[in-house]
């Protein structure tokens, strides 16, 4: 991950900062410049809650090179309690026991390494609660 590119996503990846539309209240994660619901361009920064549930998921058995030593791992689409949806790995679990509807919380984890000498890249993963 090239440093500037990694750096600019830190508020979202570390702290789950989102943009709440001042006109219609829709929350965009990551923040956007135009509200997809009402087209307003006025937002306030909010921090998402960390609890939610699994809407759907898969178990990655064949990963890209970067994640090939991590397989099998679960990736899920998670709906947070405030309605925002995101994609995250589900960590620390028996991959064969994850189910749609499972309650999760997001924790701070290392997501990937940029080779042996590059950056450690952090962000959110889910764990079952």
């Amino acid at each position: 991950m090239i440093s500037p590119r990694y750096h600019r996503e830190i508020p979202q990846r570390y702290r789950l900062e989102a943009g709440k539309c001042k006109q219609c209240g829709n929350i965009s994660f990551p923040p956007r410049l135009v509200c997809p619901k009402c087209k307003s361009k006025s937002f306030e920064t909010v921090q998402l809650g960390r609890e939610g549930k699994i809407l759907t998921f898969t178990i990655i058995r064949v990963g890209p090179d970067k994640f090939s030593k991590e397989t099998p791992y679960v990736v899920a689409i998670i709906e947070l309690n405030d309605g925002v949806r995101l994609t995250a790995q589900v960590s620390d679990c028996d991959v064969d026991k994850v189910a749609i509807g499972d309650k999760v919380k997001l924790v701070f984890r290392k997501i990937q390494d940029e080779g042996k000498s590059g950056l450690h890249c952090y962000g959110y993963k889910a764990v079952l609660t």
Binding site: E70, Q89, D92, V107, F108, R109, K110, Y122, K125
Partner: peptide
């Protein structure tokens, strides 16, 4: 530690 855990992630959870 899990493969996605290190001193930093452990510190973040403990400090949280």
């Amino acid at each position: 530690p899990g493969t996605d855990e290190d001193t930093i992630t452990i510190s973040v959870e403990a400090a949280k």
